[in-house]
């Protein structure tokens, strides 16, 4: 009885000419959502490769099959294999008698210092003492920016509430000095004074600026932070790719260490300014394979979130 119908409802084998028009549309759609064009191309192509020769039911449309496959790959891309647990790692470092260290790097104006302050707030809310190392010794006002945040944060968690200890301390040596050296001193100072975490702010730099990239590589090599975060803004378009490739490459190329440190994670800022154009999240994870550890969603201390992969993919596919 059923075999009679097989020919009718049975499968349809997908060919290239079935999927290509759908994929072309989806590629443009992704680009419109601010996925780097090159990566939109690669993503849709790999969906095409997965689907070629696949048999689908007659009632399953080609378009919906393609969309479903793409959706799945996007969710997978955004879901990190390992989950970074910073608070646990901080405790582990504490148990071995040293502060946990984190460096923030990225191009100019993306939100490194502001989001460093947000992370400080999150850490002190978790009862951890934070040392901020002012290693942007170039940009006017960079040190005062961190000092202002330090004041505000200490006012939110006054020493009286923490056995007389200031929860946040700014380690700074003014302008014009060597950033790597300041970071080293800050870490030493933190160790001696029982700080739990050292957050290293660095100056913004263009990924093609060789002397500045070299200086960053040195800072990372000398101080071996537990976590090197690349701070990128959700507003960025195709440049996301070039920024990450070159920051990673610079850390490797300019290091004399046998096993140079690379970027361990991404902090994606200004997520509140892009509506549904969330493509930068895709471009950045695609390039590094590293997780988006936090997203910045505003200009106050509480505007820090975890990335919700499903929500991002929904926005992308809508």
């Amino acid at each position: 009885m059923f075999s009679m119908f097989r020919g009718l409802v049975g499968g349809k084998t997908l060919t290239e000419s079935d999927v290509t028009p759908v994929l072309d549309k989806l590629k443009d759609h992704l680009i419109g959502k601010n996925v780097a064009s090159d990566i939109a191309g690669k993503l849709t192509q790999s969906v095409g490769d997965q689907l070629k020769g696949k048999v689908i039911g007659t009632f399953e449309g080609v378009t919906s099959t393609v969309r479903k496959t793409l959706t799945n790959s996007l969710v997978k891309l955004l879901t990190p294999g390992r989950r970074l647990d910073i608070l646990r790692d901080v405790m582990e470092a504490k148990n071995t008698g040293r502060p946990y260290t984190m460096a923030f790097c990225g191009v100019n104006g993306v939100g490194k210092s502001t989001n460093l302050a947000k992370i400080t707030f999150w850490l002190i809310e978790n009862n951890l003492r934070v040392m901020i190392a002012a290693c942007d010794t170039f940009r006017a006002g960079a040190v005062e920016q961190l000092r202002t945040h330090t004041h505000h944060l200490n006012a939110l968690h006054p020493p009286e509430k923490h056995h007389g200890n200031a929860m946040v301390h700014l380690f700074e040596q003014g302008y014009g000095k060597d950033a790597a050296g300041i970071a080293r001193h800050a870490i030493d100072f933190a160790r001696k004074n029982n700080f739990d975490v050292v957050l290293i702010d660095t100056a913004g730099r263009m990924q093609d600026n060789e002397p500045l990239m070299r200086a960053l590589a040195k800072l990372i090599m000398v101080n071996e932070p537990d976590l090197t975060l690349f701070v990128g803004e959700a507003l960025v378009g195709n440049e996301a790719v070039d920024q990450l490739v070159k920051f990673n490459r610079a850390l490797a190329d300019h290091s004399t260490s046998a096993k140079p440190q690379k970027i361990d994670g991404i902090l994606l800022t200004k997520f509140d300014t892009i509506d549904d154009k969330v493509g930068a999240a895709i471009s950045m994870t695609y390039i590094t394979g590293q997780p988006i550890v936090f997203i910045g969603t505003g200009q106050t201390y509480t505007d820090l979130r975890r990335l919700d992969a499903e929500a991002v993919v929904n926005a992308l596919m809508s």
């Binding site: 680009i31 419109g32 601010n34 959700a234 507003l235 378009g237 892009i274």
Partner: peptide
């Protein structure tokens, strides 16, 4: 405007 801005501009 920042030169690196993408589609949200």
């Amino acid at each position: 405007m920042d030169a690196s801005i993408g589609q949200a501009c």
